[in-house]
Amino acid sequence: MEKREINPWTWQDDRNYVQAVEVKNVQSTLYCAGQAAVHPDGRSSDADMKTQLLLAISNLETVIRESGYELKNIVRLNVYTTSNDEFLPHFDILKEWIANNRIRQALTLFHVTNLFETLKVELEATAVK
């Protein structure tokens, strides 16, 4: 597999994402459903944004690893949040997770009216190998 990052600018570097990722010679692609703060028994969390973000990250890690993929091979990450005001103070948590796992992905942040039940943030990823 070959990955090439496309960054016409540098401002996105501080936010730990790239403008585009070209992938060639892919063996397989994993499309993950949105992972949110859902407990192993299926209960949606009603915790604060930070706690929900940490659980959503953990759930995404579980799905990707259980599928036999590596976190560093995430090439697309969509973040859905019901409140930019609540999410943005915790954006550094996501940035640090991305940096620690050497992920170089295209990223889009969506502000949505609501998510399922009491959820505040959801992460949707595409990974390759």
Rank of each mutant, 00 (worst) to 15 (best):
E117I: 10
I98Y: 01
Q35T: 14
V18E: 01
V63R: 13
K120D: 02
Q35W: 09
N25M: 11
V128M: 00
P89H: 03
S28R: 12
T126V: 15
V21G: 01
H39M: 11
K129V: 12
L54G: 07
N100F: 11
Q105I: 15
Q19C: 14
I57T: 04
L55T: 10
S67L: 05
I6G: 02
D13K: 12
I64Q: 01
E70D: 07
E70C: 04
I6N: 06
V38P: 02
S45R: 04
K24C: 11
I93P: 05
I103W: 00
T29W: 06
N59A: 05
Y69W: 05
L53N: 04
I103T: 03
L88G: 08
P40Y: 10
K3S: 06
Q35M: 13
V21P: 02
L88H: 07
V63K: 13
V21L: 00
E96T: 13
A99Q: 11
A127P: 03
P40C: 07
H39P: 07
F91W: 10
Q105T: 12
S83R: 04
D85V: 01
E96P: 08
R104E: 12
C32K: 05
N84F: 14
T108Y: 11
A20W: 06
K24N: 12
Q35I: 15
N78H: 14
N100R: 07
F116N: 15
P89M: 03
K120S: 06
